[in-house]
């Protein structure tokens, strides 16, 4: 199915958000996920199912003052 990740369409076979993040090789620490502009806490990643057209935002650390 296709989901939106940071405003880009991504094709995935993953079922849950958790699997999706693993598929992308993202670490568990240092990132945060938002679904429809609301924080999706880490505790809910494995039970949140992906669906067609889902809009996810994933952030990580960046340099800044």
């Amino acid at each position: 199915m296709k989901v939106w990740l940071n405003n880009k369409e991504v094709e995935t076979d993953s079922i849950t958000v958790s699997q999706f993040l693993e598929e992308l090789l993202l670490p568990r620490y240092g990132i945060a996920v938002a679904l429809d502009n609301k924080l999706l806490p880490q505790g809910q990643w494995s039970e949140t199912l992906l669906y067609e057209g889902m809009r996810l935002v994933v952030i990580k650390a960046a340099c800044g003052g």
């Binding site: 990740l5 940071n6 880009k8 991504v10 992308l24 993202l26 990132i31 945060a32 935002v57 994933v58 952030i59 990580k60 650390a61 960046a62 340099c63 800044g64 003052g65």
Partner: peptide, 9 residues
């Protein structure tokens, strides 16, 4: 300090 950014694939 650090900032945040959206990941890019």
């Amino acid at each position: 300090t650090l900032a945040m950014k959206r990941i890019e694939l």
